[in-house]
């Protein structure tokens, strides 16, 4: 073989190759369903969210107050079973303004962009953020370092889920 050959194969197809019937295709659709048990620490976290409270765990060795709460401190590798209530407010560490859906399709006319953010929750150790959404704010007014407050669903609608917090709004 010629030593100069470094690239071979990778024949690009166009949509016409397929629509014209030149290239055949088979299809299958997988329907996967799962149910996840919430585990020891997160179960308590969710049960507190249902009561409109955010709870973390503290490691007695490194003193970190961790969120989401965990059964063990992954740094010290010891149980972290001291529970600490945190505030339902925090600071925006970073944010995005998202105009596409998960499948890369674009949001529709009139549909508002999604506003994901990493929020450092007050009372947790510095840098302990969670991913959540922002609301009641114009995208152009969102700033890193902005103070925000959880907006809870009404008690009757809370079900022990991270979505019991509807979003965080500016304080």
């Amino acid at each position: 073989m010629d030593e100069k050959i470094k690239v071979s194969g990778g024949t690009g197809l166009s949509s016409k190759d397929i629509s014209s019937g030149k290239i055949f295709m088979t299809e299958d659709s997988l329907d996967c369903a799962y149910a996840w048990d919430t585990g020891v620490a997160i179960n308590r976290y969710l049960s507190e969210l249902k009561k409109a409270r955010i709870i973390g765990t503290k490691c007695r060795k490194c003193k970190r107050v961790m969120l989401p709460p965990r059964l063990f401190c992954e740094l010290c590798f010891i149980p972290s079973n001291e529970w600490v209530y945190l505030q339902d407010s925090g600071v925006v560490n970073t944010f995005s303004i998202c105009y596409v859906h998960w499948d890369a399709s674009r949001i529709g006319e009139g549909e508002k962009p999604h506003l994901p953010a990493v929020i450092e929750i007050d009372g947790a150790s510095q840098g302990m953020g969670i991913m959540h959404l922002l609301g009641e704010v114009e995208p152009k007014h969102i700033k890193t370092g902005m103070k925000v407050q959880a907006v809870w669903k009404p008690e009757s609608e809370r079900e022990g889920s991270i979505t019991d917090i509807k979003y965080f709004k500016p304080l």
Partner: peptide
């Protein structure tokens, strides 16, 4: 994304890159 604490928010893969890039 974490099956319990994150997926319920219906995240989009782009989010994490956008959040990191912005940071």
């Amino acid at each position: 994304f974490d099956s319990i604490t994150e997926r319920a928010l219906e995240p989009n893969l782009l989010w994490i890159f956008a959040l990191e890039m912005n940071r």
